[in-house]
């Protein structure tokens, strides 16, 4: 049981954003997709979500082509980076939209409250979306996703930079809930930029560079100083977390010569 990209190539104009990419997301695992800006991470996630269509290759959900999956929205949820909602909609109504694929039922209000409780946003239930801070909005978005996943059919969760420009507490809540879904047998894939955070959170890392998968495996195998230097062009030291043994990445101090090299 898995969600896979098989030999996927996708072009925008002349540029191959993804070339012959294979990614497998098994149920029950948490995978972080990492790589520099423009490596194709969000594009790969978009293809897995079904919102982008590759020029060649296949997207397969539990043995079936993704496009032929009935009730796809009941099987997988996607947390995108931004939402454009500009109407003063009550938070409860925003979260309830997660029930849309399931049809309305009498216990929707209970599910909405449970989802808000899970992300520590019970107090936002009656507030208006337009009056929330960035962190509060992300909590509410995650609550909507949890509401959508509140079904025995739910199998996969895809998160596009769920921690971008958010504080530690919000990041911990969102990724914690994602882990919780993974531990109950769901497959979770998150695009992450913070390498230490990705290493701490994920069971497995997939490193994308210029549209290709260049490394894949346990965090300590993927995040070596050599590879970080090759892919990001930055010298970094890798330590081990004293408690978990997971890699911690510290970039070298920004010396004058490396600084001028980047700005020249």
């Amino acid at each position: 049981m898995s969600l896979c990209l098989e030999d996927v190539t996708l072009r925008l104009g002349d540029r191959a954003v993804l070339s012959e990419v294979d990614i497998t997301l098994e149920r029950g695992e948490c995978v972080a997709l990492i790589g520099p800006n423009g490596a194709g991470k969000s594009t790969a996630l978009g293809v897995m979500a079904g919102s982008l269509h590759p020029r060649s290759g296949r997207v397969v959900l539990d043995g079936r082509p993704l496009v032929a999956t009935p009730h796809l929205a009941r099987r997988r949820a996607v947390l995108t980076q931004q939402s454009v909602l500009s109407f003063p909609m009550p938070v409860a109504d925003v979260v309830r939209l997660g029930r849309l694929p399931h049809g309305s039922s009498a216990d929707d209000a209970t599910r909405v409250r449970a989802a808000l409780r899970a992300v520590g946003a019970t107090h936002l239930h009656d507030r208006l979306w337009t009056q929330l801070s960035g962190g509060e909005r992300q909590r509410v978005r995650m609550a909507r996703i949890l509401c959508q996943l509140d079904s025995p059919d739910a199998a996969y969760l895809l998160l596009d930079e769920p921690t971008a420009s958010l504080d530690l507490a919000v990041a911990a809540t969102v990724l914690g809930q994602a882990t919780h879904f993974g531990r109950r047998g769901g497959g979770v894939l998150a695009v992450l930029h913070d390498l230490s955070l990705a290493a701490a959170w994920a069971d497995r890392l997939i490193l994308l560079h210029e549209g290709c998968v260049v490394a894949e495996g346990a965090p300590a195998e993927v995040l070596t100083p050599e590879r970080i230097s090759t892919v990001y062009g930055v010298r970094a030291r890798v330590f081990n977390h004293p408690d978990t043994g997971r890699p911690l990445i510290a970039p070298q101090p920004f010396e004058d010569d490396s600084w001028s090299r980047h700005t020249a």
Binding site: A73, Q82, S83, V84, L85, L97, L100
Partner: peptide, 17 residues
């Protein structure tokens, strides 16, 4: 319902089916 979902943006609405 679909119209409310569209307020979230095209991608978010599509992901809700």
């Amino acid at each position: 319902g679909p119209l409310d979902a569209c307020l979230l943006g095209d991608d978010a609405a599509a992901h809700l089916g």
